[in-house]
Design a protein around this nucleic acid. Structure first.
Length: 948
RNA sequence: GCCGGUGUGGCGAAAUGGCAGACGCACAGGACUUAAAAUCCUGGGACCGUAAAACGUCGUGUGGGUUCGAGUCCCACCACCGGCACCA
């Protein structure tokens, strides 16, 4: 675009105010116990200047958080500042309303790109990371966000990941106690005490049925193997444990991925295969129920909650035992439809199922082995592609259906997953789509046991509720009752029990990478030569990664950390864990570190944590006022939907563990969460380098300034919506800011300023130049007219309400309406413009500050306090009395069709309004000569005349 | 297939069940200017009609329904976006 005359000198104003705020530390948030420096605007506003901010003296808190970015080499994208602008506006609004606002920013700086660059060039990832952080910082600061930079953190900071490792140790040293009276994470030491030869905390662990039972089991074991059993048992319970299960291994990335990550990387063209490996896991499944139930206590969008619910995938059903014919063994299946048991015509084990080897007959052995090989060789991609085509083989064995004694064949097929339920199913082809397809392909019998309620519906493949048929003692019962009756019967006979299953799997927590947090774990061998793991003591943290020359995995496929022999081997012969933690680890708790970012004694101070997370306060307020002024947890968290299940589920899990251990005061981390929508390119397509439609914020800033950029990001449409970028739209809001400027300044002085600017010397400061701008002569220190007050207060009302509802676009339009009107006023009262600037400040803070400074140079008879920055000026309250009209316009309809508006006095009674409506000329045309059958009159709203 | 969301001018959008299209973009006309840019003013859903207007008819994805009155509520369907997807 051709560079045209600037609407206003944002290029001088914006750096000026950014420097001023930084010098004043204007947006520093004060913790309880902090001393507020003399003259700090927060202190001036709240009468805390030079005082210790005692918790009782501090105003209510408001914690408003952005999802911190990964500082990529590409720099900021216009999508980042969308959420950041929204939160900044609200942070500034809350500050003006008198809250103690915490609004921090930091860096999710571990990550693969820096490591890949290191592999290629040998440059340490820290160097790349620091350069990227510097660039992101510059870009973010140029937008004038009111972050408290004193709390800045990066997950790669040694002082930060020390505590990430510390939390890992908490997980490692905890177990989840499922006892019905406990149901929470407890210290491993308690479990160990319960299993020890000479327990000291019997009072404590005797409350736990789980521990009491475990102790019994341990002491049933032979003494010589008892220690091994103990270790094994501990690992069965730890929240962080080692598993040998098949994992998602990506040969080209040289690392494993969590289930949640697979999709992301395969979409980028990487291969992912299943491969058994020794891995660290976190027992998130122990929290499935709490993660699900507590969704009801937080204010997130329905779609997001639904995504989490689906991911957790709770499913109620029953486990049923089937005796295997001619064998001692039994197989257990999980089903949500025990009522269809009479329709089970075959059984399926997953190819990996333990029983497969045992039950397969000699004749089928070769076929079964071949199939197992075939199934395990499939990549995930092949599995999904081939999903439609069922495959499997017969094992030669049969199971006995417990309800009718029938012998039914046992197959193996990869449509049954080893990792869900019991890894085995009873197949009811008549009433399950997958079983139906399988039975058709292999010509297995299909027996109807459910009759659809609608007789026209085909029963074959009918999976909904109906009425049981051909089902012995439950025949004739509707599905829910049939389920209940048969479940009770199974339970009574000891053949089954009600069970709840979750799709959620434990979290695969180790990666074969360099650039991540090393595990504070070492491996040792016992006398018998068995490897076992042991945690490093907390006092040894942080555990730093070794320095390396080469960041590639070792030729034998071990993680890069294994290259550092000195680091790897400890003097006592033990060996360090060489895996590192995934990127998600650091982002699981960063919102807590912000609260107390410099604390070297704890991951967060308790008092500080309870103040900002607001548990007590919110309870107290709820009780007192019946409404919450502050909310528990982060008051508002804004970020993209891409983290709907990954980060948000993991962080909730960690938070719940910390809560159970008494380390944080709330059960949920994020009370209210909003997803900002995607910003598309000007062509309506997703922005991407290859499409060449990426908008760089730096370019927009040079052309239009930060205030226009911020304003446009918010004016585009509702925050949550996906919307295309349009540079003409930026020009629109930029013109609006120009109108605001001209509303306040004298045009002649602007010409002088421009001339001075062209001949400016280095010695002439920007401030001197800006001082040449004079206030518009039409601004006078006079009382406002009723009409002017009405315009102002309508704007105050709309902006206030829209900010409360996060409707930034309509708030901006309300300010445009105000300016369009105010610019026509011959005399512009100072007081009115002053209030307007307070409204504008959250949106366009630089311009508003500059004009505020000019306004307050004027002598004033109003004796207002002038805080040193507008950011702490008191948010105006609208006065409903000023908005009352003397007359009102009321629409008149005839037979429901709009015909005219009439003007009546506000206090007009119904009879007067009706008369006025009938008297309207336009209305007359439609009612003349007709009888009025009915009059619908909504006071102050409308009149509808029904004629026959 | 299942779950969630969204469909309104040329475009981004706005409307407690009560005057559809606020605000902005683009566009057109005018003022200022030697001229342009910038700025300011005016106009604008479609159709019919007219010199121009008025008046009129239609109009919020489609079809029904509730209501004096529906963009808004209910039912069915269509399209698009996002998520999940052999989870028994």
């Amino acid at each position: 675009m051709a560079s045209s005359r600037r609407q206003y000198p944002f290029h001088l104003i914006e750096p000026k105010w950014q420097q001023t705020w930084e010098q004043q530390q204007a947006f520093r948030a004060f913790n309880p116990g902090d001393t507020v420096p003399v003259g700090h605007p927060f202190g001036v506003r709240h009468n805390l200047s030079g005082k210790v901010a005692d918790r009782q003296l501090l105003p209510p808190k408001f914690y408003i958080l952005d999802m911190f970015p990964y500082p990529s080499g590409a720099g900021l994208h216009v999508g980042h500042p969308e959420g950041y602008t929204a939160t900044d506006i609200l942070a500034r609004y809350r500050r003006a309303c008198g809250f103690n606002v915490l609004h921090p920013m930091g860096w999710d700086s571990f990550g693969l790109p820096a490591e890949q660059y290191a592999v290629k060039t040998g440059q340490h990832p820290r160097v790349t990371t620091e350069a990227n952080i510097a660039n992101f910082t510059r870009q973010i600061k140029s937008l004038g966000f009111s972050y408290d930079w004193s709390r800045e953190l990066a997950t790669t900071d040694v002082e930060y990941f020390k505590w990430t490792q510390w939390i890992f140790l908490k997980l490692y040293n905890s177990y989840f106690d499922h006892s019905s009276n406990i149901k929470k994470a407890m210290p491993m030491a308690l479990l160990q005490d319960a299993l020890s030869d000479s327990p000291t905390q019997q009072n404590e662990w005797s409350k736990s049925e789980v521990l009491v039972n475990l102790r019994k089991i341990i002491f049933e074991a032979a003494p010589e193997i008892r220690n091994k059993v103990r270790r094994f048992t501990e690992d069965q319970f730890r929240l962080a444990y080692v598993s040998e299960a098949p994992v998602n291994w990506s040969p080209d990335l040289g690392t494993v991925l969590s289930n949640e990550e697979v999709e992301e990387w395969t979409a980028k063209g990487h291969t992912v295969i299943r491969k058994p490996m020794r891995q660290w896991m976190l027992r998130i499944t122990a929290y499935a129920e709490k993660l699900l139930a507590d969704l009801d206590t937080i204010d997130w969008s329905d779609s997001l909650k639904e995504m989490q619910r689906n991911w957790i995938g709770r499913s109620e059903g029953a486990e049923v035992k089937f005796q295997i014919s001619n064998s001692e063994s039994q197989m257990t299946v999980f089903t949500t439809r025990p009522d269809t048991l009479f329709g089970a015509t075959y059984m399926v084990l997953s190819p990996e199922h333990k029983l497969v080897g045992e039950i397969t007959t000699a004749g089928q052995k070769q076929a079964v082995e071949d199939y197992k090989k075939f199934a395990s060789g499939k990549s995930d991609l092949e599995r999904t592609e081939l999903a439609k085509e069922k495959s499997g083989v017969f094992t030669g064995a049969f199971a006995i259906n417990p309800v009718n004694g029938e012998k039914i064949p046992i197959w193996i097929a990869d449509y049954v997953l080893a990792s869900y339920g019991t890894g085995a199913i009873m197949a009811v082809p008549a009433h399950d789509t997958r079983d139906f397809e399988f039975a058709q392909k292999f010509q297995l019998p299909i027996v109807q046991v459910v009759q659809p309620n609608d007789p026209k519906t085909n029963w074959q493949g009918f999976t909904d509720d109906g009425v049981a048929v051909n089902s012995g003692f439950i025949t004739g019962l509707p599905t829910p009752k049939a389920k209940g009756k048969i479940s009770a019967w199974l339970e009574e006979k000891g053949l089954g029990k009600k069970t709840i299953n979750y799709k959620l799997r434990d979290w695969l927590f180790s990666r074969q990478r360099y650039w991540g947090e090393p595990f504070p774990i070492i491996w040792k061998k016992d006398a018998a030569g068995n490897l076992y793991h042991e945690a490093l003591p907390e006092s040894s943290l942080p555990l730093l990664p070794p320095s390396l020359e080469d960041y590639k995995p070792t030729p034998s496929g071990e993680p890069p950390l294994a290259r550092a022999k000195d680091w790897l081997h400890l003097p006592d012969g033990s060996v360090r864990e060489t895996n590192t933690m995934p990127q998600w680890a650091g982002s699981c708790w960063y919102y807590l570190r912000y609260l107390d970012a410099k604390n070297s004694a704890a991951f967060v101070g308790q008092e500080v944590e309870s103040y900002w997370m607001g548990s007590e306060e919110s309870e107290k307020r709820k009780a007192e006022s019946g409404k919450t002024e502050t909310t528990p947890g982060v008051d508002l968290y804004v970020g993209g939907t891409e983290h709907a299940v990954l980060h948000l589920l993991y962080a909730r899990f960690w938070h719940k563990v910390l809560f159970d251990l008494g380390l944080v005061s709330t059960a949920e981390p994020f009370y209210k969460l909003v997803n900002q929508g995607l910003i598309l390119g000007e062509d309506g397509q997703k922005m991407s380098k290859s499409r060449g439609n990426v908008v760089n914020p730096d370019d927009v800033l040079v052309e239009y300034g930060a205030d226009a950029f911020r304003l446009y990001e918010m004016f585009m449409g509702p925050l949550q919506d996906t919307k295309p970028w349009n540079t003409r739209g930026v020009e629109g809001v930029y013109r609006f800011l120009g109108r605001v400027w001209r509303l306040f300044v004298d045009e002649n002085s602007e010409t002088e300023f421009e001339q001075a600017e062209t001949v400016t010397t280095k010695e002439q400061s920007n401030q001197e130049l800006l001082n040449l701008i004079r206030l518009n002569a039409s601004i006078k220190d006079v009382a406002a007219t009723p009409a002017q007050l009405k315009t102002l207060h309508a704007c105050i009302k709309k902006v206030t309400e829209d900010l409360d509802g996060m409707r930034f676009n309509t708030a901006i339009s309300a300010m445009m309406v105000f300016v369009n009107d105010a610019i026509t006023w011959e005399t512009k009262p100072l007081v009115v413009l002053r209030d307007f600037l307070i409204l504008l400040q959250p949106f366009a803070p630089h311009l508003a500050e500059e004009l505020w400074g000019k306004l307050n140079l004027q002598p004033s008879t109003f004796n207002l306090q002038h805080p040193m920055t507008l950011a702490y000026a008191v948010w105006p309250k609208f006065d409903a009395a000023l908005l009352v009209e003397s007359e009102m316009e009321i629409p008149v309809q005839v037979n429901g069709k709009f015909r005219d508006t009439i003007k009546v006095a506000v206090d007009a009674d119904n009879a007067m309004i009706e008369a006025a409506a009938k008297a309207s000329e336009k209305v007359q045309q439609f009612i003349a000569g007709k009888a009025i059958k009915k009059v619908i009159l909504v006071p102050k709203r409308m009149v509808n005349l029904i004629v026959g």
